[in-house]
Amino acid sequence: MTIRVVVADDQELVRGGFAMILDAQPDIEVVAEAGDGAAAIAAVRAHAPDVALLDIRMPRVDGIEACRVIAAESACRTVMLTTFDTDAYVYEALHAGASGFLLKDVRRDDLVHAVRVVAAGDSLLAPSVARRLVEQYTAGGPRRTEPDPRLGVLTGRERQTLLLLARGLSNAEIAAELVVSEHTVKTHVGNVLAKLGLRDRVQAVICAYETGLVAAGAPPAGGGAGVVSPPWR
């Protein structure tokens, strides 16, 4: 099955480079390129792609607003392109419906991997983005001494699953930790997302910090950098 992709960036060389890399893959087809958010929205409406790569900063309509419209109107999943050091809008992009983030200096293999991961229905954050995203959101905010009441809708096992998601464990690792099958873990993850009104695993990680289930600054399992399953290569 071919993964259909729209690439949107106001820098022609960046946009063209990403498109060339992706189009060279036997299972990926770049169906359109766009130089701003308005053109990206139009391209998604016209071509119904599986994935849209959106630069956060674009003229006319920025990537966040484009992501919001695309998420509301279609099943297309969005990956935001960011330099992060100068972008203060990553958390806002999550709430707009982004399924993941890539740094603009991403390696060729990681770009291809990211598109395949998101097209398969999973979500991802580059490790350097994940930790700083959580720190950015939690910095200066009130520290909860106990979990948010919203977590009361979860069963004990679902709460454990959310905690392990926030620590960066894959489904297989969660299954081993809880001594259950991967199928059971998928069911728990689905229940967590549905009960808390979350779009995907990226939002589940942020929710775990937001509700106080995981303390800000707590290291993920294995001392990693907050990678959302499946792990960033």
Rank of each mutant, 00 (worst) to 15 (best):
V44T: 07
L213R: 06
A176S: 13
R143W: 11
A98L: 05
D50H: 15
A120S: 15
R60D: 15
A120I: 10
S74H: 06
R77P: 08
I41Y: 01
V118D: 05
R15Q: 06
L213Q: 02
I56W: 00
C67S: 11
I174Q: 07
G212D: 06
V202Q: 06
Q25F: 02
V134H: 01
Q25N: 04
A46R: 14
L198T: 10
D85E: 15
I56D: 00
D85Y: 14
A215R: 15
A176C: 01
V179K: 14
R143Q: 14
A40P: 09
V115P: 01
K195I: 05
G97P: 06
A216L: 04
R132H: 13
V51S: 00
R144Y: 11
D87A: 13
D87T: 08
M80E: 03
G224R: 14
V214W: 03
A19E: 08
V134L: 12
G217P: 03
V61K: 00
E135P: 02
A42D: 15
A42L: 09
L103T: 14
D36L: 03
S181T: 15
D62S: 05
D55S: 08
A42G: 11
S123C: 12
S181G: 09
R77H: 05
I56C: 07
L53Q: 04
I174H: 02
R199N: 12
R159I: 08
E158T: 02
I70R: 01
D23Y: 05
E177S: 13
R167V: 01
R199K: 15
L162K: 04
S99C: 13
H113V: 00
A130M: 00
V7T: 09
V129W: 01
T187N: 11
Q11I: 13
T211H: 07
V117K: 00
L151K: 07
V227Q: 14
A75V: 12
G141F: 03
G97K: 04
D23C: 09
H188G: 01
L53V: 03
E135S: 12
G63L: 08
D109H: 13
A93C: 13
A39R: 11
L165R: 03
R199P: 07
S229K: 01
A208V: 08
Q11S: 10
L111V: 10
T2S: 15
D85M: 10
P59T: 13
A72F: 09
H95P: 02
I206K: 02
L13A: 13
L162S: 07
A32L: 06
D10R: 12
P230I: 01
A98E: 09
R116A: 05
I206N: 02
L169G: 00
S229R: 07
V44F: 02
R60T: 15
A34E: 03
A52N: 08
R77C: 05
R132T: 10
S170E: 14
R150D: 10
P26F: 06
A96E: 07
R143S: 14
D110H: 14
A208T: 06
G121R: 06
L162C: 11
V79T: 09
R143M: 11
K186R: 15
M80N: 04
E92Y: 05
E182S: 10
P147S: 10
A88P: 07
G100F: 03
A204L: 05
A119D: 05
R77N: 03
D105L: 08
E29M: 08
A114P: 01
R132C: 00
